[in-house]
Amino acid sequence: MKNFLALVFTLFLGFMIITALSNNEAFPKYGEADVSTRVSQKYLDRSVNGNPGEIIFREATNLESGPANTVTAIVADYRSFDTLGEVTVLFISSLGVALLLGSTKQRRMELDFHPNFMLKVGSRALFGIILMTGIYISIHGHLTPGGGFPGGTMIASSMLLLYLADDEFRAKIKGFKILESAAGSAYVIIGLLGLLIGSYFLENLLNNGVLGYLFSAGMIPIIYVLIGLKVGSEISGVIDNFLTEESV
């Protein structure tokens, strides 16, 4: 009975959402969004603080926001305060997992199966490749899709591979904590430097260079590397907390 009521309720709610959206004359149909009436047009043209004219790849210099990837420009430059909040969410989640599951003396959790020797050795070769991919994506966030968050997750998944392939492996958690704390504090300190030296919190202080080169976009690659390291170490800490238990 309860399942039937829930089904009726959700069907009714879905139907209501669809009719409300199709009767809404201001809500554009799928595929017909008019970007020029939205805030994003100025993000695409990099013309929030003045118009630079047409932007050509590898020729435009010192735009107000340097990355060739406009999504990175929004995440790390125009709306970087949201990114600070997001970094804080991950920080407090990993801290919460450590609070809930942590204890003083720990060892790996006992499982029913034991991986064999070939798996242990082969995974070490794969670990390096995954780690390199994660670092590449994290550094090239301003030129290709990706950035700090997927890069950090790939770094953490290389650690997960080692944990799954070897049931006696434990990484150095103390090192992760120091890395996480240092990267997070560095991000806030960069913001405060912007307040002291420039005039706004989280202002981009370095020169924005030529659009499309690796060394361009001011501080954004630095910020993305910090975020990648932070995310990687946090998620590795979460993995470690889940796969250990109290030792007798």
Binding site: V48, Y78, R79, S80, D82
Partner: peptide
Amino acid sequence: TITIGGFSAPYGI
């Protein structure tokens, strides 16, 4: 009103 990042509202926060 405090602007963050040098981009005034509504293009910034």
